[in-house]
């Protein structure tokens, strides 16, 4: 964090009131946007297997939860969430982002129906043009959002006085961070050497390929 703690003054009473109003509106939006998105023809079916033209790296992964729109959303957000930890080389960078989105999908499958429903509301709110502009204040569609615009969006939700947006920030960054930094290929970024070699050599579960 760049700013010292004394910049974090409590919100004024005026701010608080307008936040409360917006917060209520936000709750309603989250509750109804899935229906709206469904009616207006947003893709809400899992993307399944993307073709090579879509992913640029067709490794045959079958998406079970994320839709095409969700994948575009994460393609726009991940450069802001984990981008600075990635190589600048385009091809490995693209692959690392594609792999992270696949692990996000894998993780979400195991979240179960109740939390998937919550995530669906969040993603629909972010993907549906009207709410993307009015609630998330992101003017371009996700494929056209620059990394600095994605970062500005994340900062707005992180610093917002509305708990719902803080919650959205945590949901988006937590799953992305875990899927990225938790992946063995990225362990070096946190200086984690992995499980001790001697233990793996001694344990039966690592020795019966």
């Amino acid at each position: 964090m760049s700013h010292p703690p004394h910049d974090q003054k409590p919100f004024s009473a005026m701010d608080r009131r307008s936040f409360l109003r917006a917060g209520l509106g936000g709750t309603l939006f989250l509750g109804t946007v899935s229906v709206t998105a469904g009616l207006s023809g947003c893709a809400t079916a899992p993307a399944g297997r993307l073709n090579a033209a879509e992913t640029q790296v067709d490794d045959g992964y079958q998406f079970q939860f994320l839709t095409h729109d969700d994948i575009e959303l994460f393609r726009a957000l991940l450069p802001a969430i984990v981008g600075p930890a990635l190589t600048e080389e385009p091809e490995p960078r693209r692959q690392a982002i594609a792999g992270t989105i696949e692990r996000i999908d894998q993780g979400m499958v195991r979240f179960g129906p109740a939390n998937q429903k919550e995530l669906r509301k969040l993603f629909d709110l972010l993907n549906f043009g009207l709410t993307r502009v009015t609630v998330a204040r992101v003017w371009s569609s996700w494929p056209n959002v620059t990394t600095s615009e994605a970062d500005a969006f994340l900062e707005r939700w992180r610093t917002s006085g509305i708990g719902l947006f803080n919650n959205g920030y945590i949901a988006l960054t937590k799953i992305s961070n875990v899927a990225f930094y938790g992946h063995p290929e990225h362990w070096h970024l946190s200086g984690y050497p992995g499980p001790p070699e001697w233990a793996m050599n001694a344990l039966p579960q690592f020795n019966n390929a």
Binding site: L154, T173, K174, Y181
Partner: peptide, 11 residues
């Protein structure tokens, strides 16, 4: 990475 909140270069 899930417990320490943050994103981007800071994270």
């Amino acid at each position: 990475s899930g417990v320490v909140p943050g994103h981007g270069a800071e994270q």
